[in-house]
């Protein structure tokens, strides 16, 4: 065998090793979370709010954080959708294809995507100071909405760019305005993609901790108003882990398991949606 064949063999070996290492480390993460989290999980964790002394190891659960995270991420997703849908429709229907303007807009959203969530949190905090607001569910919703705005917009945008130009032109040829084309043809055509994008953004919203640290606060109660502070799952995990009491740390692992399960369910559902519904679409 000549030298260059041997070199190829060596590198192919290294590549396989890398791929295996990466897959293994990821499986290991899931495995650790399940192995540590599942044993400490009980029904009270997901059906009760913290009772007095919960953080010292007494009874209770993290229903406050589960509901808080769902309210927060749900609200943020709706708010963010109200902005990103118009943005994406403008980009794909109104703006000229591949113009300087649309390129700049996409570029800006990509850059927004890269800003760390702690900076969104700090920015949210400066806004709250400016308007003299306290940490609340509403403030959390607004900051998380801004955080997931670029994710949702760019993901929907990638789907809408795939709509064949002929389909849009057919609608124009029938006398439809751009707005009618957008709602009656393009959105219908890309609905599975839009739902997937919404689910991805929802997952990000539930999982993010740094941005809500400043803005949503924390509370042992399920929020009953937008102006009350709200607990979130990632922060509940974080706070429980910080306590020196082993039972509470165990609960942090269980909470991490709950969070991971929610995220995995969301991403599996979104995958099923993409696979099932993209079959009836005009390619």
């Amino acid at each position: 065998m000549d030298r260059r064949k041997i070199e190829e063999k060596i590198f192919l070996f290294l590549m396989r090793i890398s791929a295996i290492l990466i897959v293994l480390s990821l499986i290991l993460i899931l495995f650790t979370i399940i192995a540590k989290g599942l044993p400490s999980l009980n029904l009270a964790m997901i059906t009760q709010t913290p009772k007095g002394g919960y953080y010292l190891g007494k009874e209770g659960g993290i229903l406050n954080a589960i509901m808080g995270s769902l309210f927060l991420a749900g609200g943020a997703t709706i708010l963010s959708m109200l902005i990103s849908l118009p943005v994406v429709i403008y980009l794909n229907i109104y703006a000229k294809k591949n113009s300087k303007l649309s390129e700049f807009i996409r570029f800006s959203f990509d850059v927004l995507w890269g800003i760390p969530s702690i900076v969104y949190g700090a920015f949210g905090f400066t806004i709250m100071l400016f308007f003299n607001l306290r940490a609340s569910l509403l403030a959390g919703i607004i900051v998380v909405a801004l955080l997931i705005l670029p994710i949702m917009s760019r993901t929907i945008d990638e789907v809408m760019r795939m709509v064949p130009a002929g389909l849009i032109e057919t609608s124009y040829a029938l006398g439809a305005t751009k707005l009618e084309t957008a709602f009656k043809v393009v959105i219908k055509q890309t609905l599975p993609g839009i739902i997937t994008a919404i689910l991805i953004a929802l997952g990000r919203g539930i999982g993010d901790a740094a941005s809500v640290l400043f803005t949503a606060g924390f509370s042992d109660y399920i929020p009953n108003s937008l102006l009350k502070p709200a607990a979130t799952l990632p922060l509940a995990i974080f706070f429980q882990l910080l306590t020196p009491i082993p039972e509470v740390q165990e609960r942090a692992y269980a909470s991490a398991f709950i969070l991971t399960a929610i995220i995995l369910i969301i991403s599996i559902v979104s995958r099923i949606i993409t696979n099932r519904f993209s079959k009836n679409l005009i390619k």
Partner: peptide
């Protein structure tokens, strides 16, 4: 994996 939260 890209979707797993950083706390996890």
């Amino acid at each position: 994996l890209a979707g797993i939260p950083s706390v996890v």
